[in-house]
Amino acid sequence: MSPLSAVSVLAANTTPNPFTSQAPMFIGLIVIMYFLMIRPQQKQRKEQAARIAALQNGDRVVTTAGLHGIVHHVKEHTVMVKVAEGTILEFDKPAIANVAKKDTAGK
């Protein structure tokens, strides 16, 4: 067998590794998913936690169940929300979905 035919036989028997051609595309897909899905959710969670931590008496809130009310009293893990005249309900802090500060509540 001549050296030239040995090289052609080796070249014919080698197949390209499919992982090396698809790896950059797979990595790119993961990076795109991170920037489009994971990062915005983390940012939104941090903003929500900051709003809940800054709750004060008089703030207008909306709960995850859709109840609108005014913060009456803030405890360590719960919030007392006035939903009607003479009706005060107690909610866990994570149940607060939206907060409008008392100075912007009338606008």
Rank of each mutant, 00 (worst) to 15 (best):
Y34Q: 06
I38C: 05
V81K: 12
T64S: 08
G69V: 02
R51P: 06
E85W: 15
K75W: 12
E47Y: 06
T64A: 09
A84D: 12
K43D: 08
M37P: 05
L67G: 02
D59L: 02
M33C: 13
V83D: 07
K82E: 07
T63Q: 04
I32R: 10
D59W: 04
F35Q: 06
L36C: 12
V74S: 01
I38E: 05
K82D: 01
E47A: 13
Q44L: 12
R39Q: 07
G58Q: 01
L55V: 00
Q48G: 12
V81E: 01
N57Y: 06
Q41K: 13
V62K: 14
A84K: 15
A53Q: 07
A84P: 13
H72C: 04
L67Y: 14
I32V: 11
Y34M: 11
A54C: 06
R39F: 04
K46V: 03
D59N: 09
T78S: 10
I52V: 03
E85H: 11
Q48I: 02
A65H: 06
R51K: 14
A49Q: 08
Q42V: 10
Q56H: 08
E47F: 06
G69D: 01
L67P: 01
L55K: 00
L55A: 01
K82T: 08
V81Q: 12
R45T: 04
M33G: 10
A84Q: 15
Q56R: 15
A50F: 03
Q44H: 08
E85K: 15
Q42D: 08
E47S: 09
R60S: 04
